[in-house]
Design a protein around this nucleic acid. Structure first.
Lengths: 223, 223, 223, 223
DNA sequence: AATGAATGAGAATTCATTCAT
DNA sequence: TATGAATGAATTCTCATTCAT
């Protein structure tokens, strides 16, 4: 399936001037209060559904029903399922960005171990709020471009934080460390949501510990 | 969609006594060469499709077309899509199990670092052969029971290997270490398949290194 | 779909006395300048759309977008799509009628051949201005009553012109000649718009010639 | 709307080798008797519907109902409405071609007037059998390419017949005459189906006469 | 009068699966 | 056993039109 029209609205690029034939615009940004409430309802319903049943198994119909929205209205606001997912990703990103400010301001001063916790907490805290996101970032959902864009931004943020924390690191090493941290963050999330992992209590802490060992080691090397 | 009948055949447990009213038998295991070839074709086609388009986006129709199998014949052999996925998981498991023999025999004698590599290699080697599996283990596909069973077995294997390598470890610690290793193995796979991660060359090695640091540390503690 | 209420206002006949329960009035004829501009915009947009995509493929939505009119406003002015088509037919008719005055005044004096050209020119000239009409007169659009009324009036005009030009013709022959002329006029239009007919350059002239041969022959017979 | 996939099957061009991703082939040509009967039913139903309500107003649903075909089956055989129209055009063409043999064999020997009748009869006779075609050739239906191909072939046939009948005509004149005849043929059909034209009885004969006058004149010029 | 939001009906289309030869 | 045909249940999606502010 091709990328839905209008999807490009989200992951940067020039804002395409809407021409007359633009019959299927991107997700509507409603002007009136009532419309905004509707959008919120829809996103809530979609997030719930995605989390409970996965992106693929969730139908537009179900989202419509859960949010008590008329199907057509749903399609007016979100011309297709992908745009809902993308909107959720956006929402998540917003929350996420706020967290980073705190990290960036503390990064230069804290010890390695604490820095590690800061990074991991950004993820876990954000996910606690938007835990439908997990599905969207994991599932092979069509909006992979949007997903990749989110990941890319996340990666850049981590790199920046690492550089701020340890300015003397080589650029290449920063990149590698950032990737490892990103994956570990995701793992940490998976771990905390995976009902299957609950067999081994303390696994989350163990992962945190393991990441701390790694990061401390890498950051200590350079001095 | 509910789990298809007959699916229980695959993920271990007691063999359910098949009763006469079993209208939807599990995937057929054909005795004739031509049938086996057909099955192989189907599984190949399905694996390709799953990898390329994901489990959910892949339709029976497409598998039929790709394997040049008549739809009805496909349904005779695999009464539903889930059973195809399960069969692929089985195939993967077989390859997997063979790898474990090597690990288990070497585990007691090798150094920690090498032991770590052994574990990670089991995964990467197997995935190189069956890379459609990734999708099946990640996607929220209906056969989650089968998937969980695979995971569970994998976890048990890792625990056993760790115990064999370091018999003096406490059971609880083994469990935790195993979980961490399992997740890291999956991460390693994701990393090597994720086109997105290719921006940071050497990330795979970095992950291996990080895992090695962790494992060595944990295993050294006890002596 | 049934004919929209209010549609009868347009294609002549007695003005139906509007009763109080007239919930769906005919196309509004706005008194204010801004309203007239709006109507013009809408008709322009609709004409373009009809010509480009045909009556049926054109949606109210598209007309709204093209004319930058809010959907609801569009519906206030033109309660349904048919009324837009009818309004366009009206517009066309107005232009058309003006042309007839010239024809009628010249008809008695000119030679047969010139008379023939006069008739054909009425059509081609009018169509040059309102070329969306072609679609409306050809397409099986619901307002066939309006369409038939336009045709009928056209036929009557032709009959009148023929009678004026050749008063001694029998009524029956006039009728037949008029029909033939009407159809030839339409053919001439089709021909000039049909991109496909451009393969045979000069076809328009050839048709004119053929019509002239016919008409001259018929008109000469009687003297 | 773009041309439907598979539509190219009909109006010439290389037969595209069907690749694995060819999930939506052109209209199915059923192998079994029962399937052929089904196709016939569908085409009959579609022809009726098109004639009665026009191409655009006819829905796939209606065709399914009229032919007592399950919707999905209909879509299996004719993946979209256009392909049905194209199939009807094909059917029409077949009948049409047979008629031409007679024309071509008589063309060299008959008088101009009779030749004229022969040409006109090809159309009227064929249309009597396939009178849904009228709609398809007139309506702005998406398969305009197929429609144009039909027209083009018809034009070529007429040219050939004219050349056979009057070999000494110049090529350019043949082309022009053919176009005029083609349009007149269509007009004749419209005339006989147009309920509106019935006001002028004898109009058909009048048109025939007019065409005969024209053609005789043109063909006589050259000797 | 203008505009955003809502709505019901229905059309297009696809899917997994079964039937019948 | 292989294959073409059939099927019902959904799902996606669009449209003309109305409501409410």
């Amino acid at each position: 399936m091709k990328m839905a029209e209008g999807a490009d609205k989200f992951y940067g690029g020039m804002p395409s001037d809407s021409n007359a034939s633009d019959l299927h615009p991107a997700a509507l940004t409603p002007q009136q209060k009532i419309g905004q409430a509707r959008v919120a309802l829809i996103l809530k319903a979609a997030a719930d559904a995605f989390r409970e049943r996965g992106y693929h198994e969730t139908t537009m119909r179900e989202i419509a029903k859960r949010s008590e929205t008329n199907s057509s209205s749903l399609y007016r606001i979100f011309p297709n399922k992908e745009l809902i997912a993308i909107a959720l990703l956006e929402l998540y990103t917003e929350t996420f960005e706020k967290q980073w400010d705190g990290v960036m301001s503390k990064a230069p001063h804290v010890a390695h171990a604490e820095f590690c916790d800061l990074l991991l907490d950004v993820y876990t805290d954000t996910y606690k709020k938007h835990n439908a996101i997990l599905t969207l970032l994991e599932d092979e959902f069509e909006g992979s471009i949007a997903r990749d864009s989110v990941r890319k931004r996340n990666l850049e943020r981590i790199e920046k934080a690492v550089r701020t924390h340890a300015p003397s690191l080589k650029r290449r090493d920063v990149k590698k460390i950032a990737v490892i941290m990103l994956y570990n963050m995701r793992t940490l999330i998976s771990l905390s949501f995976d009902p299957f992992a609950s067999n081994a209590p303390g696994a989350s802490n163990e992962l945190r510990a393991s990441v701390k060992i790694y990061l401390t080691e890498r950051l200590s090397e350079i001095q």
